[in-house]
Amino acid sequence: MTDRKDALMEEPLNLVLFSGTDDKLQAAAVLTAGAAALGKPVNVFLQYWALDAFRRDRIGRDHGLAPEAGTEGRVHVDDLRRAGQVSWAEVLRQAKDLGVVDIQACSLSMDLLAIDQADLDPLVDGVEGVTSFYLNAGAGHMVFI
């Protein structure tokens, strides 16, 4: 039982980030940091609007919230930020500092947005196709946000 648990910890956590709103990216950053703290490797694959949020010139911007947040959700998120919650980008930087976190941009999404790696924040380690992502994912869990 313990062996099985330990084996699971060695498998990476694989996060596919699609949404580019600050709330979903914050949730993804917290999942990443938690796994990194436990020594679990994390592979992050950026697609579509999540990739757009990682653009060098846009990463610090307000990326809005998921529609279900509504006006009340906006107030709660703003309150937490005012109370000192650090941005998702900063949580990811800390997670990279703490553990093994590899952040890759989906090559198709790069084409879609007509950008190259120089347009992306240094948090992004590289560009890869979906097959490479699956190969690196091993038997670890796959989460789509």
Binding site: A33, V86, Q94, D97
Partner: peptide, 13 residues
């Protein structure tokens, strides 16, 4: 004043 998982990350450091 640091939010989850901030305190754990600071401890690990």
């Amino acid at each position: 004043g640091s939010f989850c998982p901030g305190p754990l990350m600071e401890l690990i450091r």
